[in-house]
Computed example of a mutant assay.
Amino acid sequence: MAPTAPDTGGTVRPRIVYVHGSGPKPRPELLKAQWDRALFGRDLGGESHLAYWAPVLHGEPLPDPVPDPLEGTPDGSVETRGEEGAEEGSPRPPVLEDPAQFMARTATEARSGDAGGGVARSAGGGALGGWLRDMTYLAEALALAEEPRPGPGEEPLPEALPLPRPVRTALFRRLVKHTFEDAHAYFFGGAGRAVRQAVVEALDAAGADADGAGPLVVVGHSLGSVAAYEVLAARNPRVDLFVTLGSPLAVTEVQDCLAAPPAVPSRTARWLNASDGRDVVALDHTLRPEYAPPGRITDLLVSNGSENHHGVLEYLADALVRDPVRRAWTRPAPGGD
């Protein structure tokens, strides 16, 4: 049974704010409803708010029937489709674009698309550039490692993804492409301010700074968790629970790009950080060593069954994530700070 808000005569309402991750997204009403259903089993209507920043980098939303490989499928099922024209027995595509070529192309595209007059650093240089390059190699290594390779005296390697290799390759390619390009645009391409503004507007719509307001939960996925964190650190509203899913915030090179040193925002009561060990975006799975005070952070390793282990809908539906969110969302508002 889906939880309901505490009966407070209609004066106090719980609020939840979602911040989506990288890549093009479905229209905002559909995306918010998908997150609502994954967490609560129903559409929350005006009690939930979405920081929808996809148009900053991706223009038109995805058509409704098209699943988003970076979000996961709405019902949590695995889509078994490959690239267009891929059939059983057809030649296998290359695993991934060569990492060096990818980094060079990303830098060129970022420069040509930067309306602000230049990128602070190229995608191939600097701390974040090194992280992006390493992520590319890791994605390639994972794709290769998942391919069974029977040989004399050898057992096939286990399949981490229940999909044929061409499909897994396509998923990894899309994950890497959208994650890297959006991360570069956010940190170095001038898009960060607009992305954070979308978070600010969603918090305003939720009444984050309203006196006597009900519980506030903020959930950020992937690059959206970075934007959510930076806004909470700068604005510091009272947050009952901050949830980060498949987040790169534990990666040192990402921390180097943050506006302020890593720390739990002083008015954030609890922080839950969940990741799958196979999620190539969450390369480091523990925030507690870097974000003080550690007593307010819980790091969780969960099993994300999406095609690339990064899908947010599968994260949200996991009981280790869903149940704490429901409890925080229904908790009566405290009497003060």
Rank of each mutant, 00 (worst) to 15 (best):
A2P: 15
A2Y: 12
P3C: 03
T4L: 10
P14N: 05
I16W: 01
I16D: 01
V19I: 06
S22Y: 08
S22F: 12
P24F: 11
E29Q: 13
E29R: 13
L31R: 10
L31T: 05
D36F: 07
D36S: 04
D36H: 09
D36T: 03
A38V: 00
F40V: 00
R42Y: 11
S48A: 07
A51G: 10
A51D: 03
D64P: 14
P69V: 07
P69I: 05
E71N: 13
S77T: 14
R81T: 10
E83T: 08
E83H: 10
A86G: 11
S90K: 03
P93T: 04
P94F: 07
P94N: 01
V95M: 08
E97P: 01
E97V: 12
P99R: 04
A100F: 13
E109W: 14
A110C: 13
G113N: 13
D114V: 08
A115E: 10
A115F: 06
G117Q: 05
R121W: 14
A123S: 12
G124P: 02
G124N: 08
G126D: 06
A127Q: 15
L132P: 05
L132D: 02
Y137M: 09
A141R: 14
L144D: 13
E147A: 09
G151M: 03
P152D: 09
L161P: 02
P164S: 04
R165Q: 13
R165L: 07
P166R: 10
V167S: 14
R168H: 04
K177C: 04
T179A: 14
T179R: 03
F187L: 01
F187S: 00
R193H: 05
R193T: 06
V195M: 12
V195I: 14
A198Q: 11
D204G: 07
A206V: 00
A210G: 05
D211L: 15
V218L: 02
G224T: 03
V226H: 04
E230Q: 12
E230H: 06
E230P: 00
V231M: 08
A234R: 15
A234S: 15
P237Y: 06
R238E: 09
D240Y: 02
L241G: 03
V243M: 04
L245Y: 05
L245N: 06
L245A: 02
V251I: 09
V254E: 01
C257V: 01
A263N: 11
R267Y: 09
L272V: 00
L272S: 01
S275H: 01
D279G: 11
V281I: 11
D284V: 15
T286Q: 15
T286C: 11
R288F: 11
R288A: 15
P289A: 09
E290N: 14
G295S: 08
V302N: 04
N304H: 12
S306N: 07
E307A: 14
E307W: 01
N308P: 00
H309Y: 06
Y315M: 01
L320F: 03
A328R: 02
W329I: 00
P334A: 12
G336K: 09
